[in-house]
Amino acid sequence: MDRNQISKWLKNPAKMANKYSFHVVYFCTGCGIIEIPPSITTRWDAERFGIIPVATPRQANLFLITGYVSTKTLKAIIRTYEQMPEPKYTVAFGSCPINGGMYYDSYNTIKSLDKFIPVDGYIAGCMPRPEAIFIGVTHLWKLIDMDKADGYKRYREDYEFYRENQEQLFGELDWPPLFQNKES
């Protein structure tokens, strides 16, 4: 263990433990999923950074969205995100979730993902190499230290707006709201 971090561990052990053990659910959308097998296996061994892939969103706290998001996958992404226990973090790969990227005029691709679910960070590149993924993860550690990776808090707080956006795209959603509306 790094001795410099002992004070941090004593101050807030839960946060430190959370931060160094990312259980990842990979959403296999777009081209970024090709980068995942080398980065989790021996070549770029992701377990050095405490990243381990898990089978279900119920066990995960980091959500990697690897590439463009079509309307059909967005529905699945929202449901997956809502199933994950808090605290949860979302990281999107490449330029497509930011503004559509090369699919800017596609009839079936979401242009910016953070209108529908909160995104804590973006990794630039088309596609990012595995090194960039690890840089992104170490950057996420810093954000968690500074309490700036607050996507799940924003989702709880502004849920009505996110839900309104989701309903504007899909019409009626076939699942009940995750949080009750706050009294306004």
């Binding site: 009839y107 910016s112 502004d158 795209l169």
Partner: peptide
């Protein structure tokens, strides 16, 4: 249907996805 030649993707994208406001705007 979206693969027909008279389907205007730019216009569709602007109407469909461009109209969705960001969370800040909604707030």
């Amino acid at each position: 249907p979206p693969f027909r030649k008279d389907f205007d993707t730019d216009k569709y994208v602007e109407n469909k996805y461009g109209q969705i406001p960001t969370i800040k705007e909604r707030k």
